[in-house]
Design a protein around this nucleic acid. Structure first.
Lengths: 209, 209, 209, 209
DNA sequence: AATGAATGAGGCTTCATTCAT
DNA sequence: CATGAATGAAGCCTCATTCAT
C-alpha cells in the first residue's frame, strides 16, 4: 500500500535523471547547473534536493543508471541470435532512439569525471568488467571463433572489441549535429562489420580448394 | 629586432600552457580555475590575460598545442623502421614521460569539450583527419598489408587502429594512480601487438603451397 | 461542547512548543528550521502552520510560554519558607530537571532576539518587571533585610539579585556538556549563598557588644 | 618594506570587522548576510572572501577582537586610581562611545553562539578567565577589601562582580533605542556603586563609637 | 611587463511557506 | 485534521575578468 509513494518517488527521480542526462550531454556535468536540470525537468530547483542530496548525488545516480543501461544492452546482445548481431548491438547502443540508450557525450563525460572522482571510476570499472566478461563469454560460446586463426583468447578479443567500441563512441561526440542518428548508426555498423571480418573471418577455406 | 619580444611572448605562452595542461588534466577544463593555472605557472592571474584573451582562449591554445603534439607523434611514427613500431608509438603516446606527450585525461576532456564547442570540435576533427591520413599512408606503403587477407583498405585499417587507440586511451583515465607509466605502457603495447597480429598477420602459411 | 477541540488545540500547540524549545536551545531561533521542529514533534511541517501563523509566531509563543514559566518559578519562590530559599529557587531555575524549567541557551537567545524584535523585547521587559516586582515584594516582607546595613531599597536589592542571576545564566551556556545538571546547580547555589551573605547578613555581631 | 601590504591587509580586515560588528549587533550573527556586511563596509561580497575564509571565520575574528577589547578594557580598569573606578570602567564598557567598545547585543549573541559552537565557547571562556583573574588580582591588592566583613575571597568577589556586569549587559539589549548612551551609562554606574557599597563598604566603624 | 586587489554575476543549497490530496 | 511534495527567494561562496599601481 505504500507502493504508490515509492513509485512516485522513483518516478520523480527518473524524471530528474531524464532531465539531467539531457543537460549533462548538452553542457557537461559541471557546466550544467541545477537550474538547468530543474528547468529541463519542468520543476523547481528545490525539488531536486528532495530526491537527491546534492549535485554529486545526481551525477552518481546517473552513473548508476548508466550501469543499468549497459547491463540491459548487454542482455540484448546476449540474446541476439548470432555473435555478429551481438556485436552490432554493442556498437550501436549510442545511436539508438529507443531505450536502453547510451548517450555518447555523457559517456565521454563520465570517463572524464572518472579520471578525477574515484567513486565514479569504481563504477565505470565495474561496468566495464561486467560488460567485458559478458562479451568474453559470448565469444567463448560462439563457434565462429574456433575457426579463426589469430590465436587470441576470447578475453583478448573482447578487449579489442570494447576498445574499438569506446573509440568509435568518442568519435561520435564530434559534430553530432551534422549527422542523423541513422547515419551515425550506419557508420557504426560498418566498423562493426569490418572488425567482425578481421576478428572472426573463418580460415580461408578456399585455400585448399 | 622584435624577435626577442616574440620569443619571450612565446615563452610566456608556453609557460602558461604548461601549467594549464597540468591543471586541466588534474581538474578538468572548467573545474580548473584561472587562479589554479597562475599558481601552477608561478605567475599572477592578471598576467595570463596579457597573453590570452580569456579562459576559452587558453583552452583553444591547449587544443592547438595538442594538434602539434599529435603531429610530432605522427612524425615519429612515420620515421619508425617498421609499421609495427609506428603502431606502437601511436599506442603509447600517452604513457611516455618524454615529449611530445599526450595526457589521457586531457584528451578525454578535449573530446568532451568538442561535443559542446564547435571550434574545439573542428580542431579535433582536423587533428584526427591529419593523423588518420598519415597512418593510412603509412599502411599503404607497408608491404605487410599486401599479404593480409581481410580485404580492408588502408583507410579502413587506419580507422580501426585509431579507434582502438582512442578506446585504450579512454581506459587509461580509469584508476590512473594505481598503475605506473611503465605498466600502462606495457598494457598498451600488448594491445597494439594483438591488433597487429589480427590486422597484419600474413596469410596462413599455406602461402608455401 | 467545543471544549475538547480547544483542549486538543492547546495540546497540539504545547506539543509543538515542547519540540520548539528543544530545537531552539539546540540550534538557536533562526538556525532551527521548521522541519527540525516538526521532526522533533513527530508531526508534519504543514501541521505547524495550522497552529501557528509562521515561525515568528512560534517564537512569540515560546516567549509567552517563557513568561508563564517565570511566573510559575516566581510563585514557587514566593511560597518558599525563607527568603534564602526563594533566592535559591530563582538561581536554579535553569538547572532543574522538573518543570517549570528555564533553559539557559533559550533565554540567552531570547534576549538576543529581544535586541532586534521589539515585540519580544516588550515581552521580556514585561516578564522582567513582574519578576522584579515580585522579588521586591518578597524582600520588603522579609525581616532579614531590616538588619542589613547597606542601606539599599528592596527594589535595588532585587535588581542586584536579578543581575547576578542573569549573569550566572549567561555563564551557564558555556561548555554545557562538560557539567551535569547537578554540578551546575551546585555552582548556582554557591553563588546564591554568597550573594545572600553579602546582601542580607545581619549587622556584624559586635552589635551585641 | 612588505609592511604596507600587511598594513593594508590588516586595514581591510579591520574595515570588514567594523562592518561586521554593526551588522551582527543589528541583525545577529546568522541573520546578518555576507551581503549586509559587504554593503556596510562599502565593498563587494567577494572581497570579504579574500580576507576571511568564510562567514564562520568572520565570526571567529570578531570573537578574537572582542577578546582584545576586553583585554584593553581590563588594562584601563587596572590603571584606574581606585578599585571603585576600575569597577565603573568594567560596568560601562558597553555604554561608551569611544574605543575599546563592547557592544551589548554582540556580546549576548556571542554567548548564544558559544552555547552551540565550542570554538567560540573556548574563546569566551578564555576571555572570561583572564578578565576574572585580572579583577581578582585588582581586588586582592585593594585595601578596601580588608576592611569588609563578608568573608568572601577576592575570586568570589570577582565572580559576583562579573555576574552583575554580565547581567546588566543583558538588560542593556532591551529597548536600546529608548535610552541614550548617557542614560544607559548612568544606570550602569548606579548599579556599580550599589554593588560597591554592598561588597566593599568598610566595617561600620561607628560600631565601636 | 607584472601584480593582485577588487568586482559581481552566477552556481549550489536551504528553508519558510503553501496547497493538493 | 494531517501530510509532505512543491515552490522560489535568499544565503553562502567561487571565479572569470578588470584595472590601478
Amino acid at each position: 500500500m505504500s507502493q504508490p509513494q515509492i513509485d512516485s518517488t522513483l518516478d520523480r527521480r527518473a524524471q530528474i535523471l531524464d532531465a539531467a542526462v539531457v543537460c549533462f550531454a548538452k553542457r557537461g556535468f559541471h557546466q550544467a547547473s541545477m537550474h538547468d536540470i530543474s528547468a529541463e525537468a519542468g520543476i523547481s530547483v528545490g525539488l531536486i534536493y528532495r530526491y537527491f542530496e546534492n549535485k554529486e548525488a545526481v551525477i552518481s545516480a546517473m552513473a548508476a543508471r548508466h550501469k543499468k543501461e549497459i547491463h540491459a544492452m548487454l542482455e540484448r546482445a546476449r540474446q541476439a541470435p548470432t555473435l555478429l548481431e551481438s556485436l552490432e548491438i554493442l556498437f550501436t547502443a549510442h545511436c539508438c532512439e529507443n531505450e536502453p540508450r547510451v548517450i555518447s557525450a555523457f559517456v565521454v563525460d563520465l570517463y572524464a569525471e572518472a579520471s578525477r572522482n574515484p567513486q565514479v571510476a569504481d563504477l565505470v570499472c565495474d561496468v566495464l568488467k561486467t560488460a567485458m566478461d559478458g562479451v568474453t563469454e559470448l565469444i567463448a560460446r560462439a563457434k565462429e571463433v574456433q575457426s579463426a586463426e589469430h590465436g587470441l583468447t576470447p578475453a583478448e578479443l573482447a578487449e579489442l572489441i570494447f576498445s574499438v567500441a569506446r573509440g568509435m563512441l568518442m568519435l561520435d561526440v564530434l559534430r553530432p549535429q551534422e549527422m542523423t542518428a541513422a547515419e551515425r548508426r550506419t557508420r557504426q555498423l560498418e566498423v562493426a562489420r569490418r572488425l567482425w571480418r578481421v576478428l572472426f573471418k573463418p580460415k580461408t577455406e578456399p585455400a585448399y580448394a
